[in-house]
Design a binder for these strands. Structure first.
Lengths: 347, 347
DNA sequence: CTGAAAGCGCTTACAG
DNA sequence: CTGAAAGCGCTTACAG
């Protein structure tokens, strides 16, 4: 592979001049520029980004450590992150933690070793020493979706509280009184916040949230299945199951179906995170939708602000309720504007 | 950030010795090793991967250029690629082409500039000059899922032909005679092969595949919607629509639902690529399943073989038909073993 | 406007 | 077993 030396030789100039041309440095004669460009073309030369990074101490690369790529919510987040990063001249390297703290650490370490310019993370746990150290050491960092309290790192996320309150109002209006939740890991902010929001909303209606109605999940489908099975085995099973993410909702559907029961006749179901398939499930699933794409883009902008020395900003966007039929709702008289099936709409 | 010099100073040895310790070189005294390790620990030193790559001319990184991350099939492929790569000591950088040749080229170029050790690609088109040049220039490369004919690059893919034949047999058995397909771009192998497989299978039953029954899609949902709309507007609409991927099937469902029609009563639907949600759609969707995880792992193994100088191997695995109810099938007397909802089963 | 030179952080023959 | 030195491919003050 041709190096800058080859180009210099071919153009009859020094490597310094070649470098200047490549970096659009103003003081290069037209003649030199022309010859260099011709040599670049002739040799099919491409600058070695590794060498450039070593020299300039910047990689123009962002790291994104995501909790679980297979979760459509995070897939979309990853996609929007890459788009915005590309628009700003950065590449992104993804690490999939698969909801495992050890894997998360593996990726954080690898990314740091590669000297990424900044790190975007949606923490799988309460914060490993590694990540905390990196933050304290001054690695540009932004949390997205989930965050770690007590660390001075900007957070970009959606506030689901009002939407959860709307959901509970909806459920209460349909006559449901025994409501259960499949929670995410308590060590994650989204794991605990969604339970708290649910509990508070229930309290407004004088409804309890007994321990037996809190299923402990891990944001993956299998845990949704197990939690739902446990609910169904109760002497007094809940009338509604609210899954704190879409994969656990999938698991809940699996469990209900395995028993030959039906949603919403035998048990109602709602989910956090809306996905295109929820329009076509049997029945269509009522869900809390997030402005996922906007979240990803805002997170990248915040991170690039930190990297480039501008004051970064935490961002909180609104989530909203999308009512479908999985809780027993008859089609509303005036249907609310609904996102099209494949594009998660922005608020 | 501490460099190898700092470690050397702290340990009272030369940087060469530090490097030897770090790379497990045999000839280092126990004493030196101990002091170096202590210094590494004390300084929290981590080797700079960028510098190491520049020096060794290898990045221990694989590039994966994928047609569309938002497609669950590719998401799973990406995930298994990362897993196997990690197991073999490589990281992977993803590029999402979003089915756009220009974006694909952007990522290939970026990846090449970063000097990845090898490239895994599922081409969006018939092969851009850039990619062809890279292949000819000797960049270690493997095609996965889709491929480009006439290039000497190993291919790892699934053969859907027998499964498509099974599908057509199934449809014919249910009495369907007017069968349509929503195809992917003809420039992609999976785009053209699936149509050919379908056409050949139809021929075995003496059934034609008229042009009007070939919808031109691009593997994304919107095109599935458009193609289905066109089918439905025909004087003699098809009785079955076979979508060549799961996103176009989603679009087809959107279109059918938008007209207030029902699957399979008004029109039957089948899809290439099985996904967990197909178990819970209304109705559950009959689909051709691929051994996605195994495909990703095999592709990585093949690529690492090329990189490390071993003879690489092309791999073709089998796809299989999963019958559900979207084509009008009554539940079979002896239900076939079916993949669990969230784990795509291997054959 | 241009080039020689230093240096980014490593690894690795080459001597000793 | 150990260190001094060269070199990977760039960029960028410093002179001219």
């Amino acid at each position: 592979m041709a190096s800058i030396k080859d180009v210099a030789a071919e153009a009859g100039v020094s490597v310094a001049t070649v470098s200047r041309v490549l970096n659009d440095h103003p003081s290069v004669s037209v003649d030199a520029r022309t010859r260099v460009l011709a040599a670049v073309e002739a040799l099919g030369y491409r600058p070695n980004a590794v060498a450039r990074s070593l020299r300039t101490d910047q990689t123009r690369t962002l790291g994104l450590v995501i909790s679980d790529v297979m979760n459509p919510y995070f897939t979309e987040l990853a996609r929007s992150v890459e788009e915005e990063a590309r628009a700003l001249g950065y590449s992104v390297i993804f690490g999939n933690a698969d909801e495992r703290p050890d894997l998360q650490d593996h990726h954080v370490r690898t990314l740091l070793d590669r000297r990424i310019d900044g790190l975007l993370v949606s923490p799988t746990d309460g914060g490993s020493p590694l990540m905390l150290d990196a933050a304290r050491a001054g690695t540009p960092m932004v949390f997205v979706d989930r965050w770690i309290p007590g660390v001075d790192v900007p957070v970009v996320r959606a506030d689901g509280r009002p939407a959860v309150r709307d959901l509970v109002a909806h459920l209460h209006g349909l006559g449901h009184r025994r409501l259960a939740i499949i929670a995410g890991p308590a060590a994650t902010t989204t794991g605990s916040e969604r339970v708290e929001a649910f509990r508070e909303a229930l309290a407004e209606y004088g409804l309890p949230l007994p321990d037996a109605y809190i299923g402990q999940g891990d944001f993956q489908a299998e845990s949704g299945r197990r939690a739902t099975d446990a609910f169904l085995d109760l002497a007094e099973p809940p009338e509604v199951v609210f899954a704190a993410d879409n994969l656990m909702a999938l698991g809940a559907l699996d469990a209900v179906r395995a028993r030959g029961m039906r949603v919403p006749e035998d048990i109602a179901l709602a989910a956090f995170d809306d996905i295109p398939w929820f329009v076509h499930t049997d029945p269509p699933v009522t869900a809390v939708a997030q402005p996922t794409g906007e979240l990803g883009r805002a997170a990248v902008r915040a991170l690039v602000d930190v990297i480039e020395g501008r004051p970064p900003q935490s961002v909180t966007l609104a989530a909203w309720l999308v009512v479908r039929r999985s809780c027993g709702e008859p089609a509303p008289a005036t249907p609310p504007a609904e996102p099209s099936a494949t594009n998660r709409s922005q608020p």
